[in-house]
Design a protein around this nucleic acid. Structure first.
Length: 588
RNA sequence: CGGGGCGUAGCUCAGCUUGGUAGAGCGCCCGGUUUGGGACCGGGAGGUCGCAGGUUCGAAUCCUGUCGCCCCGACCA
C-alpha cells in the first residue's frame, strides 16, 4: 500500500501544544496522531489509528494463540447487572452514569465482568462446554478524578479484556496461566520491559491477582522486588511475622513522665536521656508503639473509628490502609472524633492503663484496635499511657495488651525481608500495563452462572479476568521511543513501514521517488510517500523526524548520480544506494 | 477535594503593573521568486480578549462572581 501525503489527513504542528506536558502526549498531538476532545478523552487521527491497530493485531494474535475467542460488547450497558454485583455503588464517582429517555439508569462500562458472565449464563449450561475464554478490544470509561499525562491516564481508553470460565479451580489455574503466558509474549513482542508483581485484587474481588508493571520513574505504582525473585505491589505486600517471644520473666510495665514528647523523635530522645535501657542499648523509634487513629467511611455512609498500632519507626501507608479496609474509605480523624472519645489523649494514646484496657472492642473506649504483624506476643514497647505527658515502658504484647486483629497498613521499606524468605527487597516505580485476576466465583455467584457437572449437579462457574491497556501501551511506547526531533517507532508498531521523501523541484527526483515507492510496494511494504510539491526540504525532513517512521528514503540531490539515501530514523545514519536497489536493501 | 498556573486570531504567545480605536510570529488565501534542514517579497482574510456583573466618560487591562483548561497532591479494577 502507498499513502501519498498530498492526499492524506495529516496536519503536524510547528510548535508544542500548550496543554501537553509529558513527552508522549506532546509528540502524539504535535505529530498529528491524536487530538484532545475533553480532559482524558481523545480523538484518533489516521496515524494514531494505524499504530493502535498494530498493537491490537499483536494482541489479537496472542489471544488466538491462547485459545480465546473475540466478541464485542456495547460500552453502554444497563444498570441492573452492576446493581446485582454491587459495583453500581462500589464504583462511586468513577462510573459514568446516564439515563435513557424512559429514565432508566445506564452506564458506560468501566470493565465488563458482568456482561461476559451473563452472556455465558445465557448460552452455556454444561461443564462439557468449558473451559471457555472470550475477549474483546473495546473502549472503557472511567470518570477519573484527575485524568493526566495524555493517553497514560484517560477517562476513555482502549482495553483488551478477556474472561475465562471454568467449573473447577484447577481449570481456572490453567486458564489463568494461558493468559499470563500470552501477556508475556505480547509485551516481549512489543519490546516492553515488564515485571510481574503480586497485586491486590481490590474492588475486583477474587483470590489471586498479578500486575504487569513497566518499570519507569513516571509510574504510578510502587512495587518491591528481592534479588531472590519476589515481586509485589506494595499494596499487596504481606509483612513477615516474626516468631513470638517468651513472656515469662519480663519486667512489669512502668509509667514515666514524658512531658513535651509529641513526636516519636522527641520521645526517643527523652527515653535515652532519662530512662536508658537496662542492657545499655539505646532506644530507637522501633522500640515505640505508635497508635494511629483512622476513620473508616463505609459504602452506606456510616463512620467508624479504628486505631492501628505500628512500630514507631513506620508510618501508616494510606494506600495500603485503603486496601486493608476496602471497600470502606479512609478519612482523617477529626477533632469531633476526639471529642466523642474523651479517653483518647492526642499524642499519648496507648492500649493500656493502670485501670485496664483502653483500646479494643472489649475495652473502655470500645474502639477496634488492630496491630501491625511485627507486634507479636512477647515483644515489649514504649507507648502512650493515656494521660497527658506520660508514656508506659516495657508494655508486653500478649500480656499487657492484645489487639482485635492484624492490620497490614505500615509502609514498606527498602531492605525489608521478602515474605517468601528470598531476601531484602528494593523499591521501584512502575506503570501498570496489564493485570490478571483469578476472580473465582464472586461474579458467577452473584449472577447465577452455574453449569451441570459430571454428576449432574449444578456448580457455580469460576472466572478469571485479564486486562491490557492498549492505549496506555501506545503512550508508553511513545514515551520510550523518541528524541528531541520527534517520535521513533519500533518497526512492529510504526504506522508505516517506510517513509519516502522527495525533495527539491526537479521532476527527475519525483520520478526516482515514484520508482522507489513502486519497488517498495511490490516488496510488500506499507509506504508513506511525501510527494508534496513546493514544500522545502527542511519541512519534509522535520516532518519525517516528527512522525517517527523508522525507515526513511530520501530522493534528492543524489538522484542525478542515480542514488537515493536510506535514512535510519533511530541512528540518524544516512546511506546512499542506487535507486533500483533501495527496496531490496530495506527488505534486508 | 486541597495547592499552583493559565484562558487574547487556527497554533504558540505579547499587551494588563500605570484604563484611551486589538498586536507579533507561525499557519491560511492570492500573485511572484526559491528548493538538502522548518525560505523570501507583495497583497489579503481572520478575534463577542472564556462568561456574567460592577467601577468609569471610556475596560483585554481595575473589582466581584462564575465557567473551563493544565500541573502537583489526594484519589485511581
Amino acid at each position: 500500500m502507498v499513502t501519498r501525503l498530498t492526499n492524506f489527513f495529516l496536519k503536524t504542528l510547528r510548535e508544542d501544544p500548550a496543554d501537553a506536558e509529558v513527552v508522549s502526549h506532546r509528540l502524539l498531538v504535535r505529530a498529528g496522531y491524536i487530538r484532545r476532545q475533553a480532559p482524558g478523552i481523545f480523538a484518533w487521527l489516521p496515524l494514531g489509528l494505524r499504530v493502535k491497530g498494530k498493537i491490537e493485531r499483536i494482541v489479537h494474535e496472542e489471544m488466538t494463540n491462547a485459545g480465546a475467542h473475540e466478541v464485542h460488547f456495547p460500552a453502554l450497558l444497563p444498570r441492573e447487572p452492576y446493581e446485582i454485583t454491587g459495583r453500581w455503588d462500589e464504583y462511586g464517582d468513577g462510573l459514568f452514569r446516564l439515563k435513557d429517555r424512559k429514565g432508566s439508569d445506564m452506564l458506560l462500562a468501566p470493565t465488563h465482568e458482568e456482561a461476559f458472565a451473563l452472556l455465558v449464563k445465557d448460552l452455556y449450561s454444561s461443564y462439557k462446554e468449558l473451559p471457555l475464554s472470550i475477549y474483546q478490544i473495546q473502549d472503557k470509561y472511567r470518570d477519573e478524578a484527575r485524568p493526566r499525562a495524555g493517553l497514560l491516564r484517560g477517562r476513555e481508553f482502549t482495553m483488551k479484556d478477556a474472561y475465562s470460565f471454568d467449573h473447577t479451580d484447577a481449570g481456572l489455574e490453567v486458564s489463568y496461566q494461558k493468559q499470563r503466558d500470552a501477556y508475556e509474549r505480547i509485551f516481549t513482542r512489543l519490546g516492553l520491559e515488564y515485571v510481574i508483581v503480586a497485586a491486590d485484587a481490590g474492588a475486583m474481588g477474587g483470590s489471586k491477582s498479578e500486575e504487569f508493571l513497566h518499570p519507569t520513574a513516571v509510574g504510578e505504582d510502587t512495587f518491591v522486588r528481592s534479588a531472590g525473585g519476589y515481586a509485589a505491589n506494595v499494596e499487596a505486600w504481606t509483612t513477615m511475622r516474626p516468631p513470638a517471644l517468651p513472656i515469662d520473666g519480663q519486667a512489669e510495665p512502668v509509667v514515666h513522665d514524658t512531658p513535651d514528647t509529641p513526636t516519636i523523635q522527641t520521645l526517643v530522645e527523652l527515653a535515652n536521656a532519662e530512662h536508658p535501657r537496662a542492657d545499655g542499648v539505646a532506644w530507637t523509634a522501633a522500640d515505640t508503639l505508635k497508635n494511629v487513629v483512622l476513620a473508616l467511611r463505609a459504602l452506606d455512609g456510616t463512620r467508624e473509628l479504628v486505631i492501628v498500632g505500628v512500630p514507631g519507626d513506620r508510618d501508616v501507608d494510606l494506600k495500603r490502609a485503603e486496601v486493608a479496609f476496602a471497600p470502606a474509605e479512609i478519612e482523617a480523624a477529626t477533632d469531633a472524633d476526639f471529642a466523642r472519645h474523651p479517653g483518647l489523649i492526642k499524642g499519648y494514646i496507648g492500649p493500656w492503663s493502670e485501670d485496664g484496657a483502653v483500646l479494643g472492642e472489649k475495652s473502655a473506649t470500645g474502639i477496634r484496635y488492630l496491630l501491625d504483624p511485627r507486634i507479636v506476643d512477647g515483644t515489649s514497647w514504649i507507648t502512650g499511657a493515656n494521660t497527658d505527658g506520660s508514656h508506659v515502658f516495657g508494655l508486653v504484647a500478649g500480656r499487657d495488651f492484645v489487639g482485635d486483629g492484624i492490620a497490614e497498613v505500615a509502609d514498606v521499606r527498602a531492605g525489608d525481608p521478602a515474605p517468601d524468605g528470598s531476601g531484602p527487597v528494593e523499591l521501584a516505580r512502575g506503570m501498570e500495563i496489564g493485570h490478571v485476576f483469578q476472580l473465582g466465583r464472586k461474579y458467577a455467584e452473584a449472577l447465577g452462572l452455574k453449569v451441570l457437572d459430571e454428576n449432574g449437579k449444578l456448580v457455580t462457574v469460576t472466572m478469571g479476568s485479564y486486562g491490557i491497556g492498549i492505549t496506555r501501551i501506545l503512550a508508553i511506547i511513545a514515551e520510550l521511543n523518541n528524541d528531541e526531533n520527534g517520535l521513533i517507532w519500533p518497526e512492529t508498531v510504526a504506522p508505516f513501514d517506510v517513509h519516502v521523501v522527495a525533495t527539491g523541484r526537479d521532476a527527475a527526483v519525483f520520478e526516482a521517488a515514484e520508482s522507489v515507492v513502486a519497488d517498495l510496494e511490490a516488496s510488500g511494504f506499507d509506504v508513506l510517500f511525501d510527494d508534496r510539491p513546493k514544500v522545502s526540504p527542511g519541512v519534509k525532513f522535520g516532518d519525517a523526524e516528527l512522525l517517527g517512521i523508522p525507515k526513511i528514503v530520501i530522493a534528492g540531490r543524489g538522484v542525478a548520480d542515480g542514488l537515493v539515501e536510506l535514512w535510519d530514523r533511530r541512528t540518524g545514519e544516512r546511506t546512499p544506494v542506487p535507486i533500483a536497489e533501495a527496496a531490496a536493501r530495506l527488505k534486508g
